[in-house]
Amino acid sequence: MEQFEEFIQEIEPAEHRARMVEVLQWVHETYPQLKPEFKWNQPMFTDHGTFIIGFSVSKAHISVAPEGYIDEEFSARIKELGYTHGKKLIRIPFAKPVQYELLQEIIDFNMKDKADCTTFWRK
């Protein structure tokens, strides 16, 4: 995942950098068919040219951007896990563990939902 290296090296403190590496590595190892890409100043993963999931960092959390459908499909689950979310992103605080089952549910949903998608974003 060398395309993320410059982005990763800029994350401070080191504990936050390590958490982001852990998350990106998990996606890469769990979904080797997804293509890691760096666009719009954030690491993301695509499948057959369509966006599946992206990540960014702030001072207090990792933002997970799965492209919409969060409220409809995952809102209750996100709240159950103690995370907050907006219309198009989920906040995983650095102070809380990463719930990889949730990430897997979201990625699986997007891959299935966008299996026949021919554009980068949903229409």
Rank of each mutant, 00 (worst) to 15 (best):
R17D: 02
G54T: 04
Q3S: 12
F94I: 01
I62G: 02
P97I: 02
M20D: 01
I90N: 01
Q9T: 11
A60N: 15
I90E: 00
K87M: 08
F55D: 01
R77C: 03
K96Y: 03
I78D: 01
I53M: 09
Q104V: 01
C117F: 00
L102W: 02
Q42C: 14
D47Y: 15
V21D: 00
F51D: 10
A14T: 12
A95D: 07
L24W: 01
K88Y: 08
L103Q: 00
F38S: 06
F120L: 09
K59V: 09
Q3H: 08
K96D: 07
T84Y: 09
N110H: 11
H85K: 11
I53H: 08
P32L: 06
A65R: 12
L89I: 11
E2N: 14
Q99R: 05
F51L: 13
L102P: 04
K114V: 04
A65Q: 11
Q9S: 14
A76M: 12
D116S: 13
D108E: 13
R19M: 03
F109P: 03
Q99G: 01
G54I: 02
D47L: 15
T119H: 07
N41M: 04
F94H: 02
V23W: 00
A60W: 12
E72G: 15
T30F: 13
Q33W: 13
P32V: 04
E101V: 06
G82S: 11
M1T: 10
S63M: 12
R122C: 05
H28E: 10
H85Y: 15
V98C: 10
Y31P: 05
L81I: 06
R77D: 07
E10S: 09
P97N: 09
I78H: 01
W26V: 01
D47H: 15
E73Q: 15
A65Y: 15
A14I: 14
E37K: 13
D71V: 13
L89E: 03
E80S: 10
F51Q: 08
E2P: 04
V21M: 03
G86K: 11
D116E: 14
F55L: 03
F55Q: 01
P32H: 06
N110R: 14
M111V: 11
Q3I: 15
R122I: 10
L24F: 02
S56I: 09
P43Y: 06
T50P: 10
M1E: 06
E10G: 09
I78V: 11
Y83K: 06
F74Y: 04
F45Y: 14
